[in-house]
Design a protein around this nucleic acid. Structure first.
Length: 484
RNA sequence: GCGCCUCUAGCUCAAUUUGGCAGAGCAACGGACUCUUAAUCCGCAGGUUCUGGGUUCGAGUCCCAGGGGGCGUACCA
């Protein structure tokens, strides 16, 4: 920082000087704006503040210069004059994008713009590359994602969305903590990928001479912890699935999974709707949010409807597991849904739901009573043979969560795994693998447990009104840059 | 994977019905200006038109191949 008593030329492009190791900031831009809101035009206060950020706009007028300084909290105008600002010429030579620290009196210009007078200033970092057009910003999505560090400065929407993402995740953690859930971290490198039907990424551990898999879900480890006596656990973390990329899919995404001993699917529904509505109220200020030009009312309770009910409503078809294989196949034919030979009635019913009913749902709605056949980790429905106590939450037309009363019986879990193995043998490379250690854990006894998985990125999309997962993930997966 | 669209200066965009000297604004650079708000004004520069072939007297433009990206679709949350 230059000093009034013994002014030193601030390091700048001309001097090639080094930049300071730290800067003592007294106020963020937002704090100045808040503290001095309504300051009358032309008033200079005695309050001296230190602010820091990037110079985003400049307006020079001879021996007077204005700048717009932006930091994480917002923008504040800088007011410099040749009379009071040291090294005024160098100050006016700053580039857009340069980081500067400024110390001076808070004032309002004749036009009433709240400003910090530049009594002292120092360059904190030079922007050697030019910033994008100050009015148009970046429009090329590729550049926005690859150079997010630039996008965040020039796109207010991006900055706001990611700030809100942090609030959402913090809110989830706080709410779960309040309910007695302990946050844990389980392995990301799995010897046997499990907990979901998905193709994994494979990697190799040299010292162990063993292939390992990036996890596709933390589910089986979290339930091991319930066996271990952790009655309420959750994990928020990255999972990896070796599948296509789309507006709703990133190969690595963030999942919230929780397990709650002594609870069942009904408890989980209540928890889910309360959690989501609470987070929405906290970060959006309302349980009614706008998404994609439509309204979503997240206030509790959410509608519960069985899979058959929504199929009847939206596809106009009466289809259940009791309809029989032939009838379900005929339904698929009528709806022009391609079917494969090995599919059982459960898979056929699920296909009918996913192709003919789900796309028309807006929600929020819990679609309940999934076929047990397609739910290898969930417990059989207590009163409906062939069904599982599993549900998915559909919000704003998208799957937000997947949950169930957990399957606790080791023998039944073994036979479910074996059924998956048959599917795998028949060519389904997303079918689950048998995990002997998980079965052993179940043999020690898993109490009645409810489990939930929420796609955090999808929740962020919902609450930030973004239509592409890339706008909810800071660094979405892209092809390696051929020019890099 | 497949289909459609797209790629021009650091950024945002132009460039006449298949074709005729590659342009503007912002940023940068030089200058003027003591209350601006995307400041304004004058001046000066700035290009492998994504890459490689081809057609043509002549290609940013037309054709072929490749690359990046977007959207849709498939798999999936």
């Amino acid at each position: 920082m230059s000093s009034d008593a013994q002014p030193e030329p601030p390091p700048g492009p001309e001097t090639g000087g080094d930049v300071p190791y730290r800067f003592e900031r007294s106020h963020s831009a937002g704090e100045v704006v808040e503290a001095f809101a309504g300051l009358e035009a032309g008033v200079e206060t005695d309050t001296v503040v230190s602010v820091a950020g990037r110079l985003m706009l400049r307006r020079h007028q001879g021996r007077l210069a204005f700048g717009t300084l932006q930091d994480a909290t917002g923008r504040i105008q800088l007011f410099a004059t040749a009379a009071v600002t040291p090294s005024f010429e160098q100050f006016t030579a700053l580039s857009i994008g340069d980081w500067v620290g400024v110390r001076g009196a808070v004032m309002a210009t004749r036009r009433g713009e709240l400003s910090v007078r530049v009594d002292e200033w120092v360059v904190l970092a030079h922007a050697r590359r030019p910033f994008p057009d100050k009015w148009h910003g970046l429009t090329d999505p590729d550049t926005r994602y690859r150079q997010r560090y630039v996008d965040l400065w020039v796109s207010d929407e991006a900055r706001a969305a990611f700030a809100r993402r942090s609030e959402i995740v913090a809110s989830l953690r706080r709410r779960l903590s309040e309910r007695g859930f302990a946050e844990v971290e389980t392995p990301m490198l799995h010897p046997i990928p499990g907990g979901a039907a998905a193709r994994p990424f494979v990697t190799h551990h040299e010292a162990l001479s063993a292939d390992v898999y990036l996890r596709i879900a933390p589910e089986l480890y979290l339930k091991r912890l319930v066996v271990g006596g952790m009655e309420r656990v959750y994990e928020i973390g990255r999972v990896f699935r070796n599948e296509g990329i789309s507006t709703r899919h990133n190969p690595e995404f963030t999942m919230l999974e929780l397990y709650w001993a002594y609870a069942d699917h009904a408890d989980i529904m209540e928890l889910t709707e309360t959690l989501v509505a609470g987070v929405a109220a906290e970060v959006c200020g309302s349980t009614t949010v706008a998404y994609d030009g439509r309204e979503v009312d997240l206030s509790t309770p959410w509608r519960r409807a069985t899979m058959e009910e929504v199929i009847a409503e939206h596809a106009g078809i009466e289809a259940t597991l009791d309809s029989g294989l032939a009838e379900l196949r005929a339904c698929c034919d009528r709806l022009q849904i391609p079917v494969e030979a090995g599919w059982g009635p459960g898979k056929l019913l699920l296909e009918i739901y996913e192709k003919a009913a789900e796309p028309q749902l807006w929600g929020p709605v819990f679609v309940t009573d999934y076929p047990a056949e397609v739910s290898p980790l969930s417990r059989r429905h207590r009163s409906r043979p062939g069904y599982a106590e599993r549900f998915e939450g559909i919000v704003a037309g998208r799957e937000l969560c997947n949950a169930f009363t957990e399957l606790v019986d080791p023998d039944e879990q073994r036979s479910r795994f074996e059924a998956q193995a048959e599917l795998r043998a028949a060519g389904d490379d997303e079918a689950m693998l048998l995990d002997e250690d998980y079965l052993r854990a179940l043999e020690y006894g898993l109490p009645p447990t409810g489990g939930l998985g929420i796609g955090v990125d999808r929740l962020v999309m919902l609450l930030t009104d973004t239509q592409a997962i890339r706008d909810a993930v800071l660094f979405p997966t892209l092809r390696p840059d051929p020019s890099a």
